[in-house]
């Protein structure tokens, strides 16, 4: 290929991108704007939406019933994130220290569950948690408890389901940053007089911070909206933001209110990503790619 024709090709590339932009505009930006507009409109008496501007949808969020849902969701999301971090950090960190063969095996073990639909995997937890289920039988068999614990449809069950579903994201985020960690820096710290713990606190944590934060973002954001886990393992007793939005769309058919809730949720998550960027100065989420 001559230089001239290559040049020509390059300028032609511009046209090739148009369909992509059109697609993004139509299916990403369009719905977002639609949702934003919708959140300022009123609900029609019988069906659909009336084109009357109002802020009542946003005000309604702060009614105790709905506001508590936000608080509950936030509580669950924070707990989920904290637990995945506590479990996922050592997991990802030590995984990065394995031999390349060990890494491959562990990576496979982390990823294999994704090959099954998340919904189906949640039903698996029902078998474990239900009264006289696997866990109860095990605990009673060991003589640790004498009657079923009634774990299913409780807050801990939902929490376990959340942690289970989101842990791989934390592990992969931590692993990805630990893998790139220059271990000689830890050795240098030890050489300069730091104990293992001091070296970990002053060097390792600081240098794996981007991974920690991206793991937090990757876990926290979905855990605000994963409504099916609360449904399956919480038995409808737990109303989270995700459940609320779904119910407002499908059952109550209050689309403007559902939009307002979604906008608030998006603002919340954008805020977290903004903090992440401010702290790490990284544009892409570590471990996401």
């Amino acid at each position: 290929m001559t230089i001239k024709s290559r040049k020509k090709n390059k300028s032609n590339l511009w046209y090739g991108v148009i369909p992509l932009y059109l697609f993004t505009l139509t299916f990403v930006c369009g719905p977002l704007i639609y949702m934003l507009v919708l959140s300022f409109l009123s609900r029609a008496e019988v069906w659909g939406v009336e084109k009357v501007f109002t802020l009542s949808n946003y005000i309604k969020i702060f009614e105790p019933v709905y506001f508590n849902t936000f608080i509950e969701s936030l509580k669950l999301a924070l707990l989920t994130t904290a637990i995945t971090l506590l479990v996922g950090y050592p997991f990802g960190y030590f995984m990065a220290k394995l031999s390349s063969r060990g890494k491959k095996v562990m990576m496979l073990l982390v990823i294999v569950p994704f090959w099954t639909n998340a919904l189906i995997r949640m039903y698996g937890w029902i078998i474990i948690f239900r009264s006289n289920g696997l866990l109860d039988k095990l605990l009673m068999g060991l003589g640790l408890t004498d009657k079923p614990l009634k774990l299913l449809y409780s807050f801990p069950a939902v929490l376990v389901g959340m942690v289970y579903a989101l842990l791989p994201f934390m592990i992969l985020a931590i692993y990805s940053v630990s893998e790139k960690l220059d271990w000689s820096l830890v050795e240098a710290a030890r050489d300069l007089g730091a104990t293992r713990l001091q070296a970990f606190l002053t060097i390792t944590i600081k240098l794996t911070l981007p991974g920690i934060l991206s793991g937090v973002v990757l876990v926290f954001i979905p855990s605000m909206g994963l409504f099916f886990i609360a449904d399956i393992l919480g038995g409808g007793k737990f109303m989270l933001v995700g459940n609320l939005i779904r119910d407002q769309v499908i059952t109550t058919r209050n689309w403007p209110f559902a939009s307002a809730l979604s906008v608030l949720l998006m603002i919340l998550t954008s805020l977290i990503i903004w903090i992440y960027r401010r702290v790490t100065h990284v544009k892409d989420l570590e471990g996401l790619v």
């Binding site: 220059d182 000689s184 820096l185 240098a188 030890r190 050489d191 730091a194 104990t195 001091q198």
Partner: peptide, 15 residues
């Protein structure tokens, strides 16, 4: 342990 030795290292990649 390395931190208990009165020895310091200048690493090849500086670290």
């Amino acid at each position: 342990e390395p931190n208990k030795r009165d020895v310091n290292t200048v690493f090849q990649n500086y670290a």
